[in-house]
Design a protein around this nucleic acid. Structure first.
Length: 423
RNA sequence: GCGAUCAUGGCGAAGUGGUUAACGCACCGGAUUGUGGUUCCGGCACGCGUGGGUUCGAUCCCCACUGGUCGCCCCA
């Protein structure tokens, strides 16, 4: 048996990295005053159809959808925002006296795709949503949080790209302009773009196939169609970013794949060597109509999501070592039955003091047990043999220096405690 | 969904249509009695992704399936 395609087991040796990264992300979230929310891993299919959008690739071809025994159509969540907003509406979090509602989540997402490096069918996203504020400063806060998350782990090769998709009015006039612009060339565009022309002309700008088509360069930019309010908003966001000293570039062709975005859209990419085709580390944006679409009151919102897999990939590409403790405080070696009884008692006492202790359970000989202690990178080895038992003593060997002392059993815990603290 | 490529022990990796499937790492045991990281000696795949087929005979040939990797699409 193998794990299903596009899924992976995280084994000891890498789970430590995940724990470290996840703890870091939670710590940063706390500093920014975002609270954790945990929503179900599956939702009614309709939530994503309405929330993410029927025309998106995610809904059209990437959802893990199934019918349960009660004939309900359910879907393994392909992203986090729709669920968070659903929960926000369902529990009327908009009624809370403290607004905006600042939430973060971390958990598995599912998309049916061809797997490759940095793209799994089950993957983990950390994301943040700020609901209830239309202040451009919060756009900058959310972007800043994402950037800080990467930087705090030591990443350097980062590229922040932002754009504005404008508000509803701006988008509509731009949409019309795009249709007018591309229609004469319809037959020259790829099949996908031909259908995008009617469904979602904005996405044509994103097309890799038609990238070199002459009409591409002259296509109307959304930035030219931003109404006064949208443009002002976008400029404000940039001012805040500059004030926070966060470098960015504006890419007028940045179009996000989900329907709910408007105004601010952004992506963070990695410049690191050898990253392959997939370089987007995280993406997000503003979604002012979404809460209402999902049955809530008119509420602005902004958020982003990042893939932990890709974050870890980026760390590897930049050769960043996470400070993970890879040793054991103490390994206890006991020789006979009586000795083992004493060993077990000592181990319990040591562990109660928060000391990390292990012993052999394979009936190995002393020599082999020392090898194990060495492999576990144990700082100390306690030897309880015949002689020690007789004298009510324990031999303690410092594995780094090779020094060895024999002391009374009663003093052992204190001795180890001090030795470890004194490091 | 499309294209390319690959699939040998815990890991890395050679190899051939036919008696014992290299090698390296790891692991296990030993080099005199209770002490590690070095060295030396020895051990370690009735098995070559799964299922069919061709053949006197296949790990090496053919087909299907499954999975990995890379690219396209798209994204996180």
């Amino acid at each position: 048996m193998k794990a299903p395609r596009g899924t992976q087991d995280l084994l000891p040796g890498v789970t430590e990295k995940w724990q470290f990264v996840e703890e870091k992300l939670m710590e940063i979230s706390r500093n920014y005053n975002y609270k954790e929310i945990r929503t179900p891993i599956f939702e009614h299919t309709e939530l994503f159809q309405r929330g993410v959008g029927d025309t998106t690739d995610i809904v059209q071809k990437e959802m893990y959808t199934f019918v349960d025994k009660g004939d309900r159509s359910l879907t393994l969540r392909p992203e986090g925002t729709a669920s968070v907003v659903r929960s926000f509406v369902e529990h009327k979090l908009f009624g809370s006296p403290t607004q905006p509602t600042k939430l973060f989540y971390i958990g598995p997402m599912f998309r049916y795709e061809r797997p490759q490096q940095g793209r799994m069918r089950q993957f983990v996203q950390f994301g943040v949503e700020a609901l209830g504020s239309a202040d451009p400063a919060i756009d900058a806060e959310v972007i800043g949080l994402a950037m800080e998350a990467y930087q705090s782990l030591g990443l350097k090769s980062l590229k922040l790209v932002i754009n504005s998709l404008g508000d509803q009015t701006s988008r509509e006039s731009h949409r019309q302009a795009l249709v007018d612009h591309f229609s004469p060339y319809k037959d020259e565009l790829c099949v996908d773009c031909q259908s995008r022309l009617t469904k979602n002309p904005l996405r044509i700008l994103d097309c890799k196939k038609d990238r070199d088509h002459p009409a591409m360069n002259t296509a109307p930019s959304i930035l030219e169609y931003l109404n006064e309010e949208s443009e002002k908003y976008f400029i404000q966001v940039q001012k805040y970013l500059e004030s926070m000293n966060i470098p960015y570039t504006v890419d007028k062709n940045l179009v996000r794949g989900l329907d709910y975005y408007n105004h601010t859209a952004f992506e963070i990419m990695s410049d690191a060597e050898g990253f392959g085709a997939i370089t987007t580390l995280s993406g997000g944006g503003r979604y002012n109509g979404l809460v209402q679409d999902l049955g809530g009151p008119e509420t602005p919102g902004i958020g982003f999501a990042m893939s932990i897999e890709r974050l870890l990939m980026a760390l590897e590409k930049e050769n960043i070592q996470l400070p993970i403790k890879e040793n054991l405080d103490c390994f206890v070696i006991a020789m006979g039955e009586e000795e083992n009884l004493l060993a077990v008692k000592m181990i319990k006492k040591l562990r109660e003091q928060g000391i990390q202790v292990d012993k052999d359970y394979q009936m190995k000989k002393m020599k082999a047990q020392f090898k194990v202690a060495d492999r576990l990178n144990s700082k100390f080895v306690l030897v309880i043999g015949e002689t020690e038992l007789e004298n009510n003593q324990i031999t303690i060997k410092n594995m780094n220096t090779g020094d060895q002392v024999t002391i009374d059993t009663e003093q052992t815990v204190d001795y180890i405690k001090q030795a470890i603290q004194g490091e």
